[in-house]
């Protein structure tokens, strides 16, 4: 059986990049990596071995990243109001939403910030399929296992993501 350190060495890099591409923030992505490997340590015994260890770990990474995004959204919608009251701010977990992606070169920063903005408007599954296949370079079958769906469904998700991104870019050009 592999030790946690070995598992970490094999998969941490991809887990970090999946989280970073979802969240575009170094601190948040590092938190996700820590959460993922804590879960692997605690629930490793429960891992049934139906899928490969990597697939299982990347699925946890995707879920944790999406949870963090939801928390951000909830904070933007509801908790923003509470920030007017100093008393409450200490109880509200602060989420850093600043665009901080070390994989983006300075000359592309503005362009990619806009592109990631469109990606954020995609439905969850389309966004994750795009990140796994086009940014992480996973093949369709691996991505389908992580998303818990079929290969055809992943292809269809990518097709719809493409159409949506074209629509968003046309809208932004029309402004």
């Amino acid at each position: 059986m592999q030790s946690l350190e070995e598992i970490y060495r094999q998969h941490a890099h991809r887990v970090y990049n999946i989280a970073l591409n979802h969240l575009r923030n170094v601190e948040d992505a590092e938190e996700v990596v820590q959460d993922v490997f804590l879960t692997v340590h605690e629930k490793g015994i429960q891992f049934e071995g139906k899928s490969s260890l990597g697939t299982w770990i990347y699925r946890i990474a995707v879920n944790r990243s999406l949870d963090k995004l939801k928390l951000r959204g909830a904070q933007k919608r509801g908790w923003g109001v509470l920030q007017y009251f100093d008393v409450f701010t200490q109880w509200v977990p602060q989420q850093n939403t600043e665009f901080n992606h070390p994989g983006v070169a300075l000359e592309y920063k503005e362009e990619l910030k806009q592109w990631f903005g469109w990606i954020d408007r995609l439905p969850e599954k389309q966004r994750t399929a795009l990140i796994l296949v086009r940014m992480e370079g996973l093949d369709i079958s691996e991505a389908s296992q992580i998303l818990g769906t079929t290969e055809k469904a992943v292809e269809s998700l990518l097709g719809r993501a493409r159409k949506n991104l074209i629509k968003f870019s046309q809208k932004s050009e029309g402004k």
């Binding site: 946690l4 070169a105 592109w115 795009l130």
Partner: peptide, 23 residues
């Protein structure tokens, strides 16, 4: 227009070596 093309301009990032000790 390839809407996925900007993905090629996002580089992969190395994870901090201190992260495992934090875990």
């Amino acid at each position: 227009f390839d809407p996925f093309a900007p993905a090629n301009r996002v580089n992969r990032v190395e994870v901090s070596p201190f992260l495992f000790s934090r875990v």
